[in-house]
Each structure stands twice: as C-alpha cells, then as structure tokens.
C-alpha cells in the first residue's frame, strides 16, 4: 500500500527542506525534516513526521472538485476527492502529481544525499555569512544514522555547520557514532516522570535521560558536540511544578544550566485533518503569565531560560571551528 522506497536507508523520506530558519540553531539555517518518529507526543504539531514512508494527504479547503484524482488513479482507489481507499492505494502518487489545486499533497519524498545537498547548496553562502548552517530535524533523524552521518560529513567538507535536533529516543550504543561529529545537538525533553512520558509520548523516557547524560558527559569531556536542551511548554502537562523542577535538577546534575522553552501553539490541528487522523487532544493555550512562572521557577533552580532563536550559544561552549559567525 505504500512506496517501497522507504525501506531503502540510502533514500529516507524527507517531508520538508526549509530555508531561512532562525530558531533552530545559530544563524540562518536550512532545516531538513526527516519522516519517521518513535514518539507520538499528543501535542505534536507535525503529524506528517510520524511515519517513515511518504503519505498522501488531502486539504479539503483547496479542492475544486475537478475529480482529476478520481479519473487518474490506476487502482481506482479514489471514489471521490478526499475519499481514498488506503488498502487499494499503492503509493504511485499520480493523484498528487496531477492535482491542479494542490488539495492532494504528498508528505515525504525519498531523497539521496546528493539530492539533499543539491537543494542545500545554493544556501551555503547565506549560512556562512550569518554563522548558520543545516539542522537535521524531523521526525527523528537518528532513525537514519548512516544517511545523516554521511550528509553531515559532506556538509563539513564544504565548511557548513551542522546541528541535530533529536527527541533523544535512540540506542546510542549502536551505530550512532555520527552523532558525535555534529557541531551542535538540540535535545528535546518533555516529561520528567517516566509514567507520564509513556502516557503523553508513547514511550519510556529512560533511554532519553540516559542519552542526554551521556551526551553532556562527552560534551564536557570534549569528545562530543555541545548539547542544548529544549522543552516544549504544554500548559498543565510540561509546565507543572513537578516537571520543571524534575528537569531542572536533572539538568543541573549533568552539568547543564541552560534551556530553551518552546511555548505550545495548536498549529498542527489542520495537518491532522489533512492526514485523516483523529484530532489532537485540546490543551489550554499558553499564556504570558504561565511562561513567566515557568521561567521564574527554572531560574530559581539555576537554569537560564531562552526563547527559540535567542539562545546564548556560548553558554554551551559553542566554539566550533566551523562557525565563522
């Protein structure tokens, strides 16, 4: 029912390459979003990042009901626009290619590292002049260690700074040597309590804590890149007293005294609709007061808080040779 390509680790699916990103590492960056994620955080804003394979989505508000998709499908899997039988669909994406209005879209396209480099290449001068680079994000880029490692090496050859944004859920003992070759790791943390993490994110956080500890140790020892934690602030979920103090103490214990707070916005809602997924649970909106309270609490525990894009990277001994800015 889906493209075979996704199994080819040399050509993972990437659902977006975005340029001029200012909030995921220093300078002007291009983001490479990999498809596939081991976690299922209930507030996730990028549901298209969950599965590793390319997938079809339908933006009903753009559809002009021209029925091109119905006529063109070789499997007759589409009975009416927006009504696609996923069992019959073999992932040829002809419907997407031929949809004039852009209502049918495909999230994810299989890329070789040559393809990715070709798309990033024109941006290199912009990255270099702003002290920026490339950020691998997702989804979870560590699902494709070989690919990301190779890409990172090739970018380094061109003098480009690389950053990895990870959910931290991976087995760092096997085949993850490339991680230590990055110039910066943005490490997402969510819930401190293990049971709560399981409940909201679908997996235990033991591995995540272990990896963060290990990264921090390598970083201080000079054998790994600087690590910078980021915490999405979900009202009543991750901004609770217990959660914040839990993380604050943990971070402090492993020698990290800085943290980026990413306030929650309910923007992924329409994407879930396009993917025909059940709606995300509603969380109350983040307010300035809550944000201030969280910052205050964390700073009481000696953790400096930053907004995305406003980090003081020097705090993480950010002095790599590849960053000219």
């Amino acid at each position: 029912m889906v493209s075979d390509n996704f199994k080819d680790i040399r050509k993972p699916a990437i659902f977006s390459i975005q340029h001029f990103c200012l909030h995921d590492g220093p300078g002007v960056r291009s983001m490479v979003f990999f498809k596939g994620c081991p976690l299922r955080c209930s507030w996730c804003q990028n549901p298209e990042s969950w599965r590793t394979s390319p997938e079809v989505a339908f933006k009903a508000h753009l559809c002009i009901d021209c029925k091109t998709c119905v006529d063109i499908c070789p499997q007759q899997a589409i009975s009416a626009p927006g009504n696609r039988d996923v069992q019959k669909c073999d992932g040829c994406f002809l419907c997407v290619e031929n949809c004039p209005s852009g209502a049918m879209v495909c999230f994810g396209k299989n890329y070789t590292s040559d393809d990715v480099l070709e798309e990033l290449h024109p941006e290199f001068p912009y990255m270099k002049n702003t002290g920026g680079g490339v950020t691998f994000s997702g989804g979870e880029p560590t699902l494709f260690p070989e690919f990301v490692g190779q890409l990172s090496t090739r970018l380094h050859e061109q003098g480009i700074h690389t950053t990895l944004e990870t959910c931290g859920y991976f087995d760092s003992d096997t085949d993850k040597a490339f991680l230590f070759d990055m110039d910066l790791v943005l490490f997402d943390i969510k819930l401190f309590d293990e049971a709560a993490h399981r409940r909201f994110c679908g997996k235990s956080n033991n591995e995540i804590k272990k990896n963060l500890t290990r990264f921090s140790a390598c970083s201080s020892a000079g054998s790994g890149p600087p690590v910078w934690p980021r915490l999405p602030l979900i009202p009543t979920v991750t901004d609770t007293y217990e959660n914040l103090t839990g993380w604050a103490q943990f971070l402090d214990s492993i020698g990290i005294q800085y943290l980026t707070l990413v306030p929650y916005h309910n923007l992924g809602a329409s994407k879930r609709e396009w993917l025909n997924l059940p709606p995300a649970p509603e969380f109350i909106a983040m307010t300035d007061e809550r944000l201030e309270d969280a910052v205050k609490l964390l700073e009481q525990h000696g953790i400096s808080c930053f907004a995305p894009g406003e980090e003081d990277w020097a705090r993480a001994d950010f002095n790599t040779k590849r960053n000219p800015g």
Partner: peptide
C-alpha cells in the same frame, strides 16, 4: 517577530551581505 532582536539583526544583515556579494 522574525526580524526582531539580535537574531533578526544578524540574520538580515548576513543575508543582505550575501545577496549583494552575489
């Protein structure tokens, strides 16, 4: 919001410089 602050200042001045270099 995109172009505000230190981040926006560095980003815009950097991309303009690149643009004029090109």
């Amino acid at each position: 919001k995109i172009v505000s602050g230190q981040t926006g200042k560095k980003a815009l001045s950097g991309i303009f410089r690149t643009y004029f270099d090109q």
